[in-house]
């Protein structure tokens, strides 16, 4: 369930744990004075490999300050070196390649009609997938945490399905269902409706691969929170809609936004599933990642990296938003009373 990142970090000793935050984003931790804040937001969080172990309490052995300096420095250098090699270097490579023929060509690559079309399609896809996700995530999380019914466990596992299967399979499924020789294809063609190798297919594939994000964020949060506040609102005379808008939504807002940020990043960056269904019609069904691939295949490296730098920008924005949301959620959304 919980794809705990950084398996290597888990194996290190207690002393090493104290060291890691030096290299990692120490600010991941919620501000002091609300210990409960961090606990609610565990899953997902795929860039947190370095910050996560800091939350764990170290065993009552000698304090980390007594560790020999060479261990401290050595591990810090190791972590920093690793980051530089696997994150810094690629980022630098992308940027340097993107600007290798000058800023003018960089901008030209982005202004090209096909690039603009890819950007538009990516924004459109995300613009459809993200709100759908919000609606689905809220409904699923609400249903799973607030009602008792048969088949709930099955629903929970199904929500995780898109994380479990390769995106390529997701694309294949859509082709199998809606393609010209697919299950619903002939009927759709007869009614003048094209899904595969057209924009609807791209959107469908994106929705499929992204739909767990919001639900996965909200379910643990709503579960930890319990139903007491909603019951209180009910006895105070609030209607169902008032309970949702005045109590539930404000409580989950940071979790929801966090899920949406991750969902958006995946929606814009998705390659595998979209690649299968899009058909690579230039200027029509190409998203940014697909456009990058085409440019790259045509040995137009500068343009490919220029467009790729947009995705890099997206990653940076996502990380910043994630950080901000974690900080906000730590300050506000922390559960204040635990239920027995």
């Amino acid at each position: 369930m919980d794809p705990r990142p950084g398996g290597g970090a888990v194996k290190v000793t207690g002393a090493v744990r104290e060291q890691l935050p030096v290299a990692g984003p120490a600010s991941v931790r919620p501000p002091p004075g609300d210990g409960a804040g961090g606990g609610a937001r565990a899953p997902g969080a795929a860039g947190e490999a370095v910050g996560a172990p800091a939350e764990r309490s170290s065993r009552p052995r000698r304090p980390a300050t007594e560790d020999p300096a060479w261990i401290r420095r050595g591990l810090t250098a190791l972590a920093l070196g690793f980051l530089a090699l696997f994150v810094g270097l690629p980022v630098a490579a992308v940027l340097s390649e993107a600007f290798s023929k000058g800023a003018a060509l960089y901008l030209a690559a982005l202004r090209e009609p096909e690039a603009l079309a890819a950007i538009r399609l990516t924004l459109l896809t995300a613009g459809i997938a993200v709100p759908l996700n919000a609606a689905f995530g809220l409904a699923a999380a609400w249903s799973v945490t607030r009602f008792r019914y048969r088949g709930k466990d099955l629903l929970l596992s199904l929500i995780d399905l898109p994380f479990g299967v390769s995106p390529v399979i997701a694309g294949m499924v859509i082709v199998l269902l809606f393609g010209a020789r697919g299950l619903l294809g002939p009927w759709l063609v007869a009614h003048g409706c094209r899904i595969v190798f057209a924009i609807p297919g791209v959107v469908l594939a994106t929705v499929f691969v992204t739909f767990p994000f919001v639900a996965r964020e909200l379910i643990p949060f709503l579960e930890a929170q319990g139903t007491e506040e909603e019951e209180a609102a009910l006895t105070l005379g609030a209607s169902g809609w008032q309970i949702f808008t005045r109590v539930t939504l404000p409580n989950v807002r940071w979790s929801l936004l966090y899920g949406l940020v991750l969902c958006n990043a995946r929606a814009m960056g998705e390659f595998g599933a979209v690649s299968v269904v899009s058909g690579h019609v230039r200027g029509l069904t190409d998203t940014i990642p697909l456009h990058v691939e085409i440019l790259y295949d045509e040995y137009d490296f500068a343009a490919a990296f220029a467009v790729a730098s947009l995705l890099l920008l997206l990653a940076v924005l996502t990380l910043a938003a994630k950080q901000l949301l974690e900080w906000r959620a730590g300050g506000r959304g922390a559960p204040h009373g635990s239920r027995s």
Binding site: E228, E229, E231, A232, A233, T235, G237, R246, V247, P250, N251, R332, G333, P335, H336, G337, S338, R339
Partner: peptide, 14 residues
């Protein structure tokens, strides 16, 4: 129109 007070307060935290 019943007033109910919960063991764990159930105040609206936001």
């Amino acid at each position: 129109n019943v007033g109910l007070v919960f063991q764990h307060y159930a105040l609206f935290r936001h």
